[in-house]
Amino acid sequence: MFNNTYRGRKVLVTGHTGFKGSWLALWLQNLGAHVTGVALAPEGDPNHWALLKLDHESHFIDIRDETALRLAVTRANPEIVFHLAAQPLVRRSYIQPVETFATNVMGTANLLDACRSLTDLSAIVVVTTDKCYENKEWTWGYREVDPLGGHDPYSSSKAGTEIVAASFRRSFFNTPKSALLATARAGNVIGGGDWSEDRLIPDLVRALSGKQALEIRSPRSTRPWQHVLDCLSGYLTLGQALIERDGSAADAWNFGPDREGNRSVEELLATLARDWPDVNWRLSQDTHPHEAQLLQLDSSKSRQLLKWRPVWSFGEAVNVTARWYRTWLEDGRVSSEEQLNAYHVTAKQRDLAWA
């Protein structure tokens, strides 16, 4: 996979205890990389990172702590960095706006500044979000050249992350020998092992465990849903291009689903219910903070220039997500590695370039 780019390489993953980060750490281990993680200690029980029991060097550090972060990064001396550490929740950003900006903007600046002195570094992938765009509720997808912005503190902070990354790329990572720096913007990610607060499927799993109906806020809100492995295959493809010194890859990139993945919350729940008859929901009557109703990504650039595309369709992504949680709830078994292997097999069958 990925032309053996990651085998034997030193890789730093920030946010490795989170949902995306733990899946990425698992995949990198399977690719033969030497992974070091920097993150907060995992929240809650259960959590995907603890369930995986991966043998990686871990540093439990807040990326707002510039001194501790710099020391950990220097000691790891990675060849490539995947920066996923963030405050990732829209609703929490309304409650803790200063923490959100401090983590997502200044935390990124702290990391990139620490990377400036590394001797072996070739590539940096900074992960942001589809919500970094100034959302005008368009019916077409946002492209990488569209204006950044955001209504809520989370979205605005991620636009700030993009601006910080672009500034460091132009100011410090701009010589023929310096590391190449890119940013990656993915859609709404689903998959097994996510227990974050205020996310649709984790909230649903908690409701099912308590034999309750899920309260949903905006049943007609449309999002670009994709499986976590589809989004991570984009990050790894981008990292490969950077390591191979493709200067054109040092830019911003969208990694979203095909158009059929743009579905409403109601459609996602209905699809889940076909694979999981216990699924039940009702409309919340509470007042909630503003969230965008319509959001889509245009990933044409990634498809054309990086030869990346999703592997699993919307229905397949929902099906494997339901199976992961049902396997966990009914048998207590973690099927992440099994699903990663199945994903790779399908990618090969569908002639994906990285596979």
Rank of each mutant, 00 (worst) to 15 (best):
T327P: 14
A250M: 04
L329T: 07
R217M: 09
I61N: 08
A249S: 05
L84A: 04
E291A: 06
G256V: 00
E99G: 03
W140C: 02
C231F: 02
M106P: 03
H290D: 03
E137Q: 13
A249C: 05
G315N: 12
A25D: 15
E266L: 09
S122D: 12
Q293N: 07
H290I: 11
H344F: 03
K307A: 00
S302H: 03
P176C: 02
C115P: 07
T129H: 07
Q96V: 04
G32A: 14
L340V: 14
H344A: 08
G37S: 03
L52Y: 11
R333M: 10
V189G: 00
E43K: 14
L51H: 04
S299L: 02
Q212N: 14
K211Q: 12
W324T: 11
L238A: 03
V311Q: 12
E43T: 10
V105G: 14
Y235T: 01
F172E: 07
T237M: 01
P310Q: 00
S122C: 10
L297E: 00
L269E: 01
W140K: 01
E244Q: 01
L54P: 12
N280W: 10
F60H: 11
Q226K: 00
W281E: 07
E267I: 07
W49S: 08
G315K: 06
P147C: 03
D203M: 15
V73R: 05
I216N: 02
F101H: 14
T346L: 12
A102Q: 15
T5N: 01
R199D: 08
H48E: 04
F82G: 11
L269A: 09
G332Y: 02
K136I: 13
L329M: 07
L31G: 14
E137M: 07
V90S: 06
G239P: 07
T346Y: 13
A109Y: 15
L89Q: 07
T108L: 08
